[in-house]
Design a binder for these strands. Structure first.
Lengths: 197, 197
DNA sequence: ACGACACGGCACGGGCCGTGCCGTCGGTAG
DNA sequence: CTACCGACGGCACGGCCCGTGCCGTGTCGT
């Protein structure tokens, strides 16, 4: 076949990413070396460097290759229920290995490497945001949300607390926690509908 | 004096932390080496290792030494205004160097080093949370907040979006953004006070 | 004056970096 | 069938930094 060349190429690429994920889980991302990845994958270091210019970008590809399809939003007509469903699914992935520690390490790396941060946003955060935004927009058009509902802020306010728990306090994210966030955001936290604010 | 010994000790400690901060700002935390810090501080490597067991813990001490007093909450009687004041002050610190990049790098390191994560929580996050909690509790007792106001969640919901912007999308955090978060949390985002939720 | 101690300077083995070079192997073109 | 070519694995290199040992020095408490 004419693509056996490409096929061989892809096989190595996958082997390298798999080795990177294995080692990241065994040693932690901090102790992950390209040298070890190459050895584990049965590959020369050049073969790694030919594909990725930095450890961070390799790790990004590796983590995102664990594809998370199934994070798209259902539309049952009840926007809050749909959001809870999506958030629950996301949290189930993050709750335990392999995704949790890997995603956490990836965001950690993004704080040190602007290239990783940019790529993570473009390839993962933005699509996910757009998806949520579309679902919220539909809800607004169907009168489920107020006309002045702050669409652009919604994703931040919903995800922010989850990321805060994952990255800062590093407490477990439970179903109850998701419910309370939804409660706070959609029912409001103030006793007075019209605060002095 | 009897503490000239301790004084000398402290001088070196400060010099090392200052050197670490300088280098972190010049090169970025990722390229920060203990060897370079020691040289810049005019100090032997032992003197660094005698005080800190890892680069992360040194960096944590260095960043937290830029003391952020003035993050305590005022109490003017209007809890939302007080929160906005505190959040604005915090964001002013984070908005631009040196705090912004340094704090971002510190949280990044915390994702790779559990010791740093634990210390960061104990020494910075928890006191700040307790402070906010106390202000909210006072507000609740004075009837400014509903009796069933979710105190424990409040800090997460208020800070979460800010951290999300700082760490994930890495967009600037403006005054307008703070206002919108407060609006969302305290006035609620839903058009219907009693959602099906 | 003496002893204790933290210190700066130096050197070491070791790990990993990123990069060259070389011989091989598979697929392609003529 | 053969000649070419690109990607490859293996190896070696200089360089940086790690964490640690040793040695001579200066400064303090006794």
């Amino acid at each position: 076949m004419s693509d056996s060349r490409a096929s061989r190429h892809d096989n190595r690429t996958e082997a390298i990413m798999r080795a990177a994920l294995d080692l990241a889980l065994e040693l932690g991302y901090a102790k992950l070396s390209i040298e070890a990845v190459a050895t584990r994958a049965g590959v020369g270091k050049h073969t790694v460097y030919r594909r990725w210019s930095s450890r961070g970008l390799l790790f990004l590809d590796a983590v995102l290759s664990l594809n998370t399809e199934g994070l798209s939003h259902p539309n049952t007509g009840d926007v809050v229920a749909d959001l809870r469903e999506t958030m629950t699914r996301a949290v189930k992935l993050l709750a335990r290995p392999p995704w949790g520690p890997l995603y956490q390490a990836l965001i950690g790396e993004a704080q040190h490497d602007p290239e990783v941060a940019a790529a993570l946003n473009r390839r993962f955060i933005e699509p996910q945001t757009a998806d949520t935004l579309a679902r919220l927009k539909a809800a607004k058009e169907q009168g489920e949300l107020a006309p002045d509902f702050d669409l652009d802020l919604a994703f931040d306010v919903l995800s922010g607390p989850l990321y805060y728990r994952l990255l800062i306090t590093q407490q477990p994210i439970t179903h109850d926690y998701i419910d309370r966030v939804l409660q706070a955001v959609f029912a409001g936290m103030s006793p007075r509908p019209k605060t002095s604010y």
